[in-house]
Structure formats: structure tokens, C-alpha cells
Amino acid sequence: MAGLDALPKSFQEIILRLQAYWAAQGCAALQPYDMEVGAGTFHPATTLRALGPKPWAAAYVQPSRRPTDGRYGENPNRLQHYYQYQVIIKPSPPDLQDLYLGSLEAIGIDMGLHDIRFVEDDWESPTLGAWGLGWEVWCDGMEVSQFTYFQQVGGHDCKPVSGELTYGLERLAMYVLGVDHVMDMPYNDPDAPIPLSYGDVFRQAEEEYSRYNFDIADTERLLRHFEDAEAECAAILAAPAQDPKTGKHIVMAQPAYDQAIKASHIFNLLDARGVISVTERQAYIGRVRALARACADAFLETEAGGARGSGEEPGA
């Protein structure tokens, strides 16, 4: 591939190089999940696929939303909408650290000049009922990735263990490209006929969403949506696995999980609106976790979750 040795020139080139690198390592190059999520981990390709015995390897970009981090597009490195690059491999290969370091080289970080460090940082997602051990990876003192060996997801022990890598794309790209304000970062090739900066693409959206998230989002409606998602999730999971129409055994883990994702995002919006008190917070997190757990339980009854055969009764 031409030009891989040269330094990348734009945000999108870094994404493309990561995608090419992990594809070359045998990962399925997936696309973002089409729902609002707080982090790449929420993508079913990570949360659900980390469960059960089946091998899995995937890499993808995931747009992520953190309503409380909105700064109207003015802060040099805080955004309410940003991108994570996510790699998940099950079982975690013995050379995952080396593979990871290779990906940094692929985006132009010269291992001979930089100081890469693995600094203890254990990961926990109270809403997913998940935790793992690992590190944050530092490049010259800056955190560029999170590196985690999943131990539990949705309350289930991970067997085998998945290795998960999460890159904060904007921050990493700003470092590689030597940019100080995220909005100034070249999105496409700066020499393209129509060069676009990150700000050209996203500044207005950041401003609009910041206002919406902090001041306009209708909290009563959101509360109703939260309860609707919760109810829908339960209803989906309560439906009998035996489908009368097709006669097949169809556990609907993923549609149910979509509702869990939805509830989680609505909770984040409510949090940004400042209407959730400290004590309520724990209760909401517990409700989302209960949904995630129920979905994890259901996924383990599906073929992808390692249950035998689909279209038949389990054990038949």
C-alpha cells in the first residue's frame, strides 16, 4: 500500500489505516452500530460477542455520545459526540500487546522515538455489569488507548477471555497530526480540492447538541422513553422462544439489547440535564444493568452465544 510509511495527513487516514491494519490481522472490519451509545463497548459485536465460547475477532469505528461532555464545540478536546476505534478478539491472542503496538506504528507512531507505557487501569462498566483488567496505554505521557482483558460481561464470566482495545480517535489523531484544537484537525486530505477540517464537519453539530442536551431535551418525555425501552426489553425477552409463524426457536437477544442500549443513552441524557440525584443515579444504573444482564442471559441461549443449533428446541 503506497504511502503507509509516510505520516498520515488527516483524521480519516488514521481511521483507514487502523481499519486496514486490523483487517490484515484477520479481524472482521465491521461498521458502526446504528444506535446512540456511550462507548464502543456497547456495540453488540463487543458486549454480546464477548459472551459464550465462540471465537470472534472484529474491529470497527463507533460514534460515541457523552452528553455531559458537550462544550458547544469550543473546548479543544471535549466533545459530546466523538469516535472510538474498537478491536475485540476472543480468545485474546498471546501477542495482543505486540499486535496493538503494530497498530500504533501503522498510524505513524515511531516506536524508536516514542515512549509507550502500559499503566494499570482496570475497566468497569456498571451499566453493563462488566469488568476487566488491563491498562491505559500512554504515548509520551498521553493516554492513547484502553487495553482490557474482559473478565465478566452482563454478570457472566468470560470464558474464553476477550481482549479489547479502545482508541480515542480524536485525541490520538490530534497527537499524531500535531493539532492543538480538535476543530482545527484536517478531516480529509488538506490538499484535497475541498479540504475539510473536523470543525467544518462537526462544530455546528456540537453546538446544536450541546444546547439540546443541556437545556432543551424534554426530561419528562425522556423519562417515559426510558420506561418504554425498559418495558419493551422485558416484553421481547418474555416472548416464547418458539416462533409460531416459522416454527423455529428464536430467542431475540439483539432486539432486546437494542432497548437496553436505548435506556442507557436516555439515562445519559437525563444525567446531562441534571435531573438525576445522587441516590437516584445508582438506582437508574441498576435498572440499565438489569436489562443488560437479561440480554446477556438471552444471548447465551442463542447459537452465536454458543447454545446448540438454531431452529430447534435446545437439547433436541
Binding site: G132, L133, Y149, Q151, C158, K159, P160, G163
Partner: peptide
């Protein structure tokens, strides 16, 4: 103080 499993082991 905290330990972990990895891979398929």
C-alpha cells in the same frame, strides 16, 4: 490483590 484469566486458559 487482583488477578485475571486470559485467552482460553
Amino acid at each position: 490483590p487482583k488477578s485475571m484469566r486470559w485467552g482460553a486458559g
